[in-house]
Write a protein that binds this DNA or RNA. Structure first.
Lengths: 117, 117
DNA sequence: ATACAACCTAAACCCAACTTCAGGTCAAGT
DNA sequence: ACTTGACCTGAAGTTGGGTTTAGGTTGTAT
């Protein structure tokens, strides 16, 4: 069990962000003792997934949906699987975009260098 | 020469966005005839660069800076080159991040599928 | 018992990047 | 003359993802 401060240090995320995530429902089953949040391995795993889904372009409200599916159990396997499949497609598209951008950047870098002669 | 409507269709960007970019100074030398914007090849090229720099994570105000450097001529080659070098580094970091995310997504996809048995 | 750090809340605020709104101009067709 | 469509403006509104503020509680060390 960890406090919010420990998790903040562990993930290098501001405490305010963790509280915001909690308020947005990203830790559906999180326990408290006399009001104080208790982050367990479940929430740590959740945070890894949150970071990943965020970077794949998912919005907070859709991440909340995912976390609720997780909390609901086996009935939602199909939904979760579909979500990851969509994220995979999104990431693949992002990568192709980045490759194109990289090509343009490299070209620009080259032409800036040449014009400089 | 193109109107804002033609450029909007060409780049699949809302007219309001193009006007916003203009207001933010992303087309420093753009001409007008009786108040109406005239997009030329220069602005089209600028838009390609804008899309690219945006996707690399650059903010509007920094893109404006770049466009002003372009308008200023040879004295700013070094600055522009450095900017592209930084973008290249940023894109490379983004790609590594995406690879890591993809690995997690693939793992999750696999484990969701397995738990479903 | 008192000081202190680390926690808590609700509500207000912030920021970038747009988008919408209300009202106006202008050129072409009928 | 007048309607229509495509353009224009400044200002206000929206959205997403937080951060800050103000005031309050808890737990441990002295």
């Amino acid at each position: 069990m960890y406090t919010i401060g420990q998790i903040s240090a562990m993930f290098n995320l501001p405490i305010s962000t963790l509280r915001y995530y909690d308020k947005e429902g990203l830790f559906p089953g999180m326990k408290r003792t006399s009001g104080i949040r208790q982050f367990s391995d479940i929430e740590i795993e959740a945070l890894h997934v949150i970071e990943c889904l965020k970077k794949s372009g998912l919005e907070i409200k859709d991440i909340r949906q995912f976390m609720f599916w997780c909390a609901e159990g086996p009935a939602t396997y199909e939904n979760r699987k579909k979500l990851f499949e969509n994220r995979k497609v999104a990431l693949e598209a992002q990568m192709r975009e980045l490759e194109k951008n990289m090509a343009m950047i490299k070209f620009k870098l080259k032409s800036e260098a040449e014009s400089n002669q």
